[in-house]
Design a protein around this nucleic acid. Structure first.
Lengths: 201, 201
DNA sequence: ACCGTAGCACTAACGGTTAGCCTTTTGAAA
DNA sequence: TTTCAAAAGGCTAACCGTTAGTGCTACGGT
């Protein structure tokens, strides 16, 4: 083995990266809606079908770090230090994610997202996926056989915190503000043991 | 005036209704994905362009009551009886909406929605719109000049309650469960007066 | 040295959506 | 009543994202 990946996998990764880079450059230059898939493929010197074998949709070209975000949320729960409570761990991660997304280099990217309805819609359904994964992780953390309404709700609240905060002028403060609410919500949920129905199959 | 609407508006409404009815019938018969727009238009005896002048997308054919839902949420806040608190009013409305959507006749419709990724995605972005409207209504109710992170968060939490509950075996119980959490979240948000930044322009 | 397969290309098409342009209907002003 | 502007609808033709079908080539393991 050369390094860790074979030539084949390196080439594949290179192709993927080239497509993503080309797409983001074109989108930045001329706007997301004004650039077609055929154009991106041509500029990256690949076939349209190749592009779609690397990215599941045009929007996915923009949200390249989709799975990163998802795993960060899940790991914030599963890999947290022993004895650290659930909500503070989530809060720290959301803080970091917000910081990452409001960093200077990313501003124009998020502006582009806000201007395109298609991208907004994609982002929303992406967050829903993330909330589902997070809910599963939370349920597992509580040794529950499956997600309860409380798990799903807390997961969604956390994701909401990110979305709402990112749209405000002072994201970090907003995250803290919302997480105080989530903390309170979690407290009453924990105090109220789940009813028979909500755990039953 | 004949009745309240002129002939023109009555005809327009009739056309719209005919399109919606035809579409839902075809979708129910053969599945959402298996029925094309051209087919729906032909069956409703209108041109494709006419269909799209009444509905902004294929998915909108299914979520005909989109605006109803949005207005019910907003009115639950603005039109509630004097002295009734905000969160209980919202809870009542969400209860009613869940009941309405889990009634017997609607079951097959929601199964169809769950089976189609396109419909799920549309529903999600619809809920986001509703949450935005609700946030604005809540802000107005509190005499705030614009939405704060707290308003947006509570609005999203309420909408989340609907979405999570609808996926549960026992939706009504789930709504109560989640609204206990929202009540707690609202309590700490109200107790903590907004900081200067979160209200500033 | 060989073979299975992953990666990629090409063509052609499908389905949702829109633009451009034309006809008919309708509400109301002149 | 006549007239007229706007609304509603229609037709054609296309654009765009996405996928199926097919085949070639180069790589990795045996």
């Amino acid at each position: 083995m050369t390094g860790q990946l074979g030539r084949r996998e390196r080439k594949k990764a290179a192709t993927r990266q080239k497509i993503a880079d080309t797409a983001l450059r074109l989108f930045a230059e001329r706007g997301y809606d004004a650039v077609g898939i055929r154009e991106v493929a041509a500029a990256a010197d690949v076939a349209v079908t190749t592009l779609f074998s690397h990215f599941s949709s045009k929007e996915a070209l923009v949200f390249e770090q989709d799975e990163d975000f998802e795993q960060r949320l899940v790991r914030a729960v599963t890999d947290r230090r022993p004895h650290e409570a659930l909500i503070p761990a989530l809060r720290r991660e959301i803080h970091a994610m917000v910081q990452h997304c409001t960093a200077d280099g990313a501003a124009s990217l998020w502006r582009m997202i806000e201007e395109s309805p298609a991208l907004r819609q994609y982002e929303e359904s992406m967050r829903q996926r993330h909330a589902r994964s997070l809910a599963t992780a939370i349920a597992a953390d509580l040794d529950l056989p499956q997600t309860t309404p409380t798990c799903s709700a807390i997961a969604r609240f956390a994701v909401d915190a990110f979305s709402v905060a990112r749209e405000t002028d002072d994201p970090q403060t907003a995250v803290d503000e919302i997480f105080r609410m989530i903390e309170a919500a979690w407290a009453v949920a924990g105090a109220t043991p789940p009813t028979r129905e909500s755990v039953a199959v």
